[in-house]
Nucleic acid binder design. Structure first.
Lengths: 188, 188
DNA sequence: ACGTTTAACTAACAATCGTTAGTTTTGCAC
DNA sequence: GTGCAAAACTAACGATTGTTAGTTAAACGT
């Protein structure tokens, strides 16, 4: 059974996603958990800690994913496929928390915000590197690597919203489709 | 010279984007405009009206774009190209307001929220229709139209954030690259 | 120059928020 | 059953918020 702290974090993720961090108050969060507001503070130290942990938990997941891929001996395209597959899986498994990555980090205090953005930048750099290796194989269209990176990450970052309306889809099928979409593109 | 009301809306867009709607207070907005908070109410009726108008102004732009494309006699691929070109142009011309489309609409009251989402759904439906026509020409990979739609719109919706870090790029060049990226995809 | 409208200001309100203090209840070790 | 720690509760605080009332200054047509 999940710890009370984790239950609070789960409900927080759902509410932060639905109404935004700033518009979510501790009394509503408490009600969702089934408790009075003051009782939350037996398990957490403050509101921002919740956002901080939710974001950092996810950021660490992506950092791990990147480290594993980079340490592997796969070819560049297989590496790209692995990154995409991880992203899709994280999205399916942590839809609410993942959704916070897009916009809610602006509400972090300066220090944790920089920490978060730093991890995010590292991930992007790793992604760019691998994408660059892919383009260099000659099996891809000549396209600006920054544009390709941005477009790919955009699709992945929005996936949570699409997935929320298509929960019935199979994880593997989703991975396949997204990979095909991103790597093969539209035109024959 | 811009009306005071428009100046307020411009500053609101910038602040709403930077800190989020809920985290932006009327005193800070007033200071940005160069006025005391109470003075804002000589030009606007309340805070939410600002968000509402900013979002609706953009939504109307997209509705127009779609109507024009649909009324044209272009082929499906040209229609798609036109939609993409419009989106890119709007992003460059109204970067701050466009950025609000992604997440800040959740803070609208129920009625304007439904109105906004309705326009958004109509746009998506129009886009899906045209994308479907494209796929039917046989010059594209066989791919789920919902996935293709989602991926395409994701890229366009995130464009503002990429553009903000690459302001030096030429509008036409950006249009070309994005179109190429989205329509040709990565692989030869 | 004068009167009127427009828009600025000061001050303060009512509501809401995150959080703390102090107290009571719960649940488990023995 | 008793004692103790964990976690719930009530009540209230100080700060911040959007907004209004009432007043003064600026701008403009005549």
């Amino acid at each position: 059974m999940k710890s009370k702290r984790q239950q609070i974090k789960d409900h927080a993720a759902r509410l932060f996603r639905k109404r935004g961090y700033k518009a979510t108050n501790m009394r509503d969060l408490a009600e969702a958990v089934g408790v009075k507001a003051a009782s939350l503070y037996n398990h957490i130290s403050n509101k921002e800690e919740l956002l901080q942990e939710l974001l950092m938990d996810m950021a660490r997941l992506f950092t791990e994913s990147m480290a594993n891929v980079q340490a592997s001996s796969l070819g560049p395209v297989e590496k790209l496929e692995r990154l995409i597959a991880d992203y899709v899986r994280y999205t399916v498994e942590h839809t609410d928390a993942i959704s916070l990555l897009t916009g809610e980090w602006v509400h972090l205090d300066e220090k944790p915000k920089q920490e978060f953005l730093s991890l995010r930048d590292n991930y992007e750099d790793g992604f760019r590197q691998i994408l660059n290796d892919c383009l260099a194989t000659g099996h891809f269209n000549k396209i600006d690597v920054d544009i390709a990176l941005f477009s790919t990450l955009s699709t992945l970052r929005w996936l949570y919203s699409w997935y929320s309306k298509h929960r019935e889809i199979n994880l593997l099928e989703l991975e396949t489709q997204i990979t095909k979409m991103l790597i093969d593109g539209l035109r024959k």
